[in-house]
Amino acid sequence: MPVMTKQAITKKFNVPAEAVWAAIRNIGRLDVWFPFIDTCRVEGEGAGALRYMTIAGGGEIKDTIEEINDERMTLTYLRPVSPFPVSYYKGTVEVFKSYDGLGVVVWTIEFESQPDEAASVAELVYGAISDGLDGMEKDLQSA
């Protein structure tokens, strides 16, 4: 019987919150931020847009953008095609403004997998998103 796992990865950026949100909202630079993503292409805009990625070593990822909320600086996506052993995958990326105006990103993943795979998927997702957030910060600091 599959189990649901929820995991949040948080990082404070040395970049203003508005710049962080603008980058996330754009939805198309994952190949720049995430070391394991080779290509990233987007079809459409806003809710309903599709994001297609290829990953190093082969494999594909497809995301459907579910919601972009500028007021709350929140983006939600579903991942119906994933290289991970999951039957459900949802990501929510939130940007908060710190007291000093800098961006704090909380990237929450919810996924469903077999019980014996949940811990390894969680570890893989945590590492990948942590690397991606570091890559995003470097990209934004060089802009």
Rank of each mutant, 00 (worst) to 15 (best):
V106L: 07
A8W: 07
D31H: 11
I129T: 11
M1V: 10
I65S: 03
K97W: 03
L30G: 10
F96D: 14
R51L: 08
A119H: 05
F36D: 14
A47H: 01
K138E: 09
G44Y: 05
K6W: 00
I109M: 12
V105K: 01
V15D: 01
R29S: 12
F13I: 01
T108H: 05
C40K: 04
F36Y: 07
L50V: 15
R41W: 10
A118E: 03
R25Y: 07
R25S: 15
P83V: 10
E66M: 11
I9A: 06
I65L: 09
T54A: 10
T108V: 11
L30Y: 06
L124Y: 06
G44K: 06
Q114S: 15
A19P: 01
V125R: 01
W21H: 06
F13N: 00
I24S: 01
G101S: 05
R41V: 15
F36W: 09
T10L: 08
T108F: 07
N26G: 11
K138Q: 11
K11C: 05
V95C: 13
G135N: 03
G57Y: 01
V32I: 10
S82P: 04
E112M: 13
V42N: 04
D31N: 11
V104T: 12
T92Y: 06
S82E: 02
D131A: 15
W33H: 06
T64P: 02
M1E: 13
W107A: 04
D134P: 02
P2K: 13
E71G: 12
E71A: 14
T76E: 13
R41C: 10
R72I: 07
K6L: 09
T74V: 15
N26F: 14
T64K: 11
P83I: 12
G91C: 09
R29F: 08
I55W: 00
D139E: 06
L75T: 03
E18Q: 05
G48I: 10
A49C: 07
G46T: 05
K62N: 05
D134E: 15
V121T: 02
T92F: 04
M1T: 13
F34I: 03
K90S: 08
E60W: 04
S98E: 11
A17V: 03
W33D: 04
E110Q: 15
T10V: 15
E43P: 02
V42L: 06
N69Q: 07
N14R: 06
A23D: 02
A23Q: 01
K11Y: 04
G46Y: 09
V104A: 02
G57N: 02
W33C: 01
E45P: 05
P115E: 12
Y77P: 06
S113F: 07
I55Y: 00
L140Y: 00
V95S: 04
F36E: 11
G57C: 00
L78C: 12
V106T: 09
G91R: 05
A47K: 02
P85A: 08
S87P: 02
M73L: 11
A8E: 14
N26Q: 15
R41K: 15
T10E: 14
P2F: 12
E123R: 08
N69V: 13
V105G: 03
W21C: 03
K97Q: 14
P2M: 14
E60L: 08
L30M: 09
L50E: 13
A19M: 09
